[in-house]
Design a protein around this nucleic acid. Structure first.
Lengths: 222, 222
DNA sequence: TATGCTGCATACTGACGAGTATCACAGGGA
DNA sequence: TCCCTGTGATACTCGTCAGTATGCAGCATA
């Protein structure tokens, strides 16, 4: 949070960031093909010249956006995980995971992130570079989830009933699937749905989620 | 399978169907905005004139495709469900559900259906009519899943540990989520992943899936 | 104050694609 | 045989948008 001297390089970096943020909004709203660079630039408060000054092409902009959002996602991810590691290693990881979910949910506010993610997935089907990044990201996500699950097993000192690798894939799929479901039917996914999902997952692992030491979840969180 | 006399109306219906099938392929490949009506027509073996003779606009074609695929999906759905109802009402519904999943999986061959579904979801964000249809479809899916789950509970004569409504939402989300995950990383979802998913779900319901009377699942079912 | 450099604006081009207008030609009915 | 209906082909229009070329303002160094 230090105020850098606003050197020319910083100015350029700022416009680039503004363009990326605007691109996230516009691409999420209209999709890749449906978006125009004019609208992206205008949303950022610039014109198309600024876009082509900072990115090689429309695809280049989209790929840069993909990179940036992936990094953001993992920043939130590992942030919460690290936070959890600092706390006690008890078996009631439920509030921590719940916090993680809420952190990811509201990552870009509302359905924007989910929409953008779907756009990435579809776009990647025509762009090998994007596909590679997406695949790598999916792997990293599952690896993180797997480690988290294995920690749970280690904490309760039991042998896994299901393969932790598969459980990780299922957990990630379930989370993304709920986001997708919410796009199709906004009323389908509520707070209790999330809780039930956590209950099912912890149930599958072998933890009884009915023994929380506390419930630090603020309900009316934005 | 009866051979109708090929009246003019039938000819027209056939070209319409060809156009819809071609549209499914092309839209799944290039997305809605990325597809051209010329390519759709050419794929079907016609020209654009045939398209505008059978559909009002590009959006109209896409909406018609949405309708058709939704109907197909439910045809497969209720077909398998009905088939299951004719068999014994025993507790080993696992092979039946597994068959249901495989039926839905290969509905349009490979990832085509999943891709098309994502395209529908994104498209619906700009088209209220499509959104309404999609929401209604999601509701029907969950209702079917819920009934299936309630039947399980009734069969084993126990009280639900989790809300059947939420369990239904989770099941559907899990299934769609796995399809989405497979698009991001084709190696992520295997046969064992599906089996583990079923194990988790049945586990949550309270059924021990390790007591199958038989395993009629043909592995190499292309 | 001149001079170069850089980041963005402005104006333009070229291509592509949705939608339209019109026509060819099939098959059915008298 | 002739008309008549309408499906589907062909050839166009018109708008849109990615990409380009050029201009220009601001800031730096001299």
């Amino acid at each position: 949070m230090t105020f850098e001297p606003l050197t020319p390089e910083r100015r350029r970096a700022m416009t680039r960031q503004h363009l990326l943020d605007a691109a996230a909004v516009v691409f999420a709203k209209n999709g890749f093909h449906g978006s125009t660079l004019d609208e992206v630039a205008a949303t950022a408060g610039f014109t198309k010249g600024a876009v082509y000054s900072n990115f090689k092409s429309k695809d280049d902009l989209f790929l840069a956006l993909l990179d940036e959002r992936i990094n953001r996602e993992f920043a939130v991810f590992s942030d919460v995980l690290e936070q959890g590691r600092l706390e006690d290693q008890g078996a009631d990881q439920l509030p921590r995971v719940r916090e993680l979910l809420h952190g990811l949910e509201g990552m870009s506010g509302g359905d924007t992130w989910t929409t953008l993610y779907l756009e990435f997935v579809l776009y990647a089907r025509h762009n090998p570079e994007a596909q590679a990044k997406l695949t790598a990201t999916a792997r990293r996500e599952r690896d993180l989830a797997q480690k988290l699950i294995e920690n749970e097993y280690a904490a309760i000192g039991e042998d896994p009933t299901f393969s932790t690798r598969e459980m990780a894939a299922i957990s990630v799929a379930l989370f993304n699937g709920l986001g997708l479901e919410r796009l199709a039917d906004p009323d389908a996914v509520t707070e209790t749905t999330i809780d039930t999902m956590l209950g099912v997952l912890f149930d599958a692992i072998g933890i009884d989620p009915d023994t929380p030491s506390e419930s630090p979840v603020t309900e009316g969180s934005k």
